[in-house]
Design a protein around this nucleic acid. Structure first.
Lengths: 343, 343
DNA sequence: TTGTTTTACGAAACCGTTTACTTAATTTGG
DNA sequence: CCAAATTAAGTAAACGGTTTCGTAAAACAA
């Protein structure tokens, strides 16, 4: 490992001069500066992040907290796209990404916050987790620059997918296609679910839709089994819905299977709507009508906001950034306007 | 930030004593040791990873190189599962994960290797990338402990999914179902593709299958469009195959769509086989018969091997670890044994 | 010329830990 | 009882940078 000391010897200057030359301080003569840079390059020098961090308290490293439960963080289509975009964004600005976890070593276990302090993360992004555990709360209450994604805390920047508009657009779309009997199997309780559900009810009211209680039920996100069951239940109803909204695309597949197994056609017999816009939704038959979330922008805004928070703490607004998605029009929703007329 | 110095003052001992007490050196009296530990806990002390790394040259941080091209690394179902498993495994042993990239700061861009040295990664895992770029080669030639996944380099530990056995099992399965006219749309050229393709031919020969050239073609992994096109081509053949193998599950969906659009049924009219065993494959209709790769074990073995390489460099074997998958029997492959008899 | 400012660099402290080497006190052995 | 060995602590130098402050030389002004 070639260090500044080696360069200072090679150039016959002090290490202070080397440091200042490489960092482009302006109290170093331009010839000296160029010469030092040249020699540094020739000798294959690059800095030691640990030493730099130790002295400057800046690591250029961002901690990302992702769900630790099985199969719900990294492997989640929606969140992995957000992470990918976040990663690209911060890397462009010279930051690395390290996962936050309950770090274990011989002296025991660390809380998330302790882990962050241990690693000296300049900022943290909380992407996909249970936001109401004590450790997560401890984290957001700390003074480390933080952004959360799809969750709103007091005094913490949040990048939110516009669930209210998303659900409104989705329901309005379905309505315009002539549907009046619309069921909604919503996700498990969370801030996101709340937003969507209340937007669903509000929009329904505005459209003059009547939603019987039996049209509303719950299946956890990505729970194909439960979505399947609930779909079966809905199909058995005397007054069956013409369209079913699912918690997300993945869960929708459970519903689709239930429908197909009963010999019903999509969308002719019953329409189906997902949420998220995962890749596969566009590649199956029927292509799934869904709310396509803008994962790229979510990750990008989160990264930009976080870096701004780190580099300009005084002037960066603590705010909520809303990112809109759009209705992806597959062919899983029938246009029944004409059918209605016939009746 | 409470440091060892603070504790040393609080305890009336030197920082060396604190350091040794906290690290359980045995030249500290047990009472003193306990007392120091107690005070450290009370004061909320935890170490500074940068300082520790600077002094010890150990970061307990592992660099992971993931493809940087759009939508092929993090968001890839197969690789994201491997990463998830790798992450869990190394975290259990007290290591963190940071992504390797071409780090940029004001003094320019770093190569992957330079980035690794800059961050002082104890080891690196190369998971999913183009293995033949100069920068990746530079990386594997370095003396940093390294494991690669699904690629074999000289003198580097490799964790490989058993593509030879996988393809053999898959083809044998299809054969046992009575299929004799089997097409294989294989992935773009790579070591993985080579393994599968040669295993396909060898197994075919052993089974006495004749595979006309027109049954073999190429579509990039996850390229639904190309898979669609190639499927259309296959369907138009005079002597049409009864079963088509795809590069991966995702690509298979392209093929499935082509087949369905032409009014053909799966598996009654034509059988379809994927590769990977991504989650969704079990949740669509028909459920996809595919080779289920053992992502959990791949990530786990990779993590364990890497840590062994880091902690016991002398005694750890440089070897190739093969992880087997299994045929997931969906219902996309028809049993045509009886049909054959009828004819 | 002399006094003042500017420029270009160096000395040294410091960031938080680890560790080789000392040293003082205590225990052990004969 | 005294020398040797052991134990328990401390001292100080590193690790590789950054930064404050000081200063000699050069440039400038009058």
């Amino acid at each position: 490992m070639v260090s500044m000391k080696d360069i200072s010897i090679a150039c016959g200057v002090s290490v202070a001069t080397v440091s200042k030359a490489l960092n482009d301080h302006n109290d170093i003569g331009s010839e000296t500066k160029e010469h030092i840079k040249q020699v540094a390059k020739e000798m294959g020098y690059f800095p030691n992040s640990a030493a730099k961090a130790l002295k400057t308290n800046r690591t250029y490293n961002i901690g990302v907290l992702f769900a630790e439960d099985d199969y719900s963080g990294l492997t989640h289509d929606y969140f992995s796209f957000v992470l990918d975009s976040l990663k690209r964004t911060v890397e462009k600005k010279g930051y690395d990404i390290t996962f936050i976890n309950d770090f274990k070593n011989r002296s025991g276990r660390m809380s998330y916050l302790e882990h962050c302090r241990y690693r000296g993360f300049d900022g943290i992004a909380i992407v996909c987790t249970d936001f109401y555990t004590p450790e997560v709360l401890e984290l957001v209450r700390s003074n480390i620059p933080t952004v959360t994604i799809d969750h709103l805390f007091n005094n913490v920047c949040a990048i939110m997918s516009d669930n209210v508009k998303g659900m409104r657009d989705l329901l309005t779309y379905v309505y315009q296609k002539g549907h009046r009997k619309i069921a909604y199997i919503h996700g498990a309780d969370s801030a996101v679910t709340q937003s969507r559900l209340s937007s669903f009810y509000r929009t329904a009211a505005q459209l003059g839709l009547e939603i019987p209680d039996e049209y509303i039920s719950v299946a956890a996100y990505r729970d194909t089994e439960k979505a399947y069951e609930e779909t079966v239940r809905l199909l058995k109803l005397k007054d069956r819905p013409t369209c079913i909204l699912y918690p997300d695309d993945f869960a929708a597949f459970g519903g689709i299977n239930a429908i197909k197994e009963r010999g019903l056609r999509i969308p002719e017999d019953i329409s189906v709507v997902g949420y998220d816009g995962i890749r596969i939704a566009r590649h199956i038959e029927p292509t799934l009508t869904t709310l396509n979330q803008n994962t790229k922008e979510l990750g990008q805004k989160a990264g930009e906001k976080l870096i701004s928070l780190i580099e300009h703490p005084k002037t960066t607004l603590i705010e909520q950034i809303i990112v809109e998605g759009y209705v992806y029009e597959g062919n899983s929703v029938a246009d029944i306007n004409e059918r209605e007329k016939e009746i």
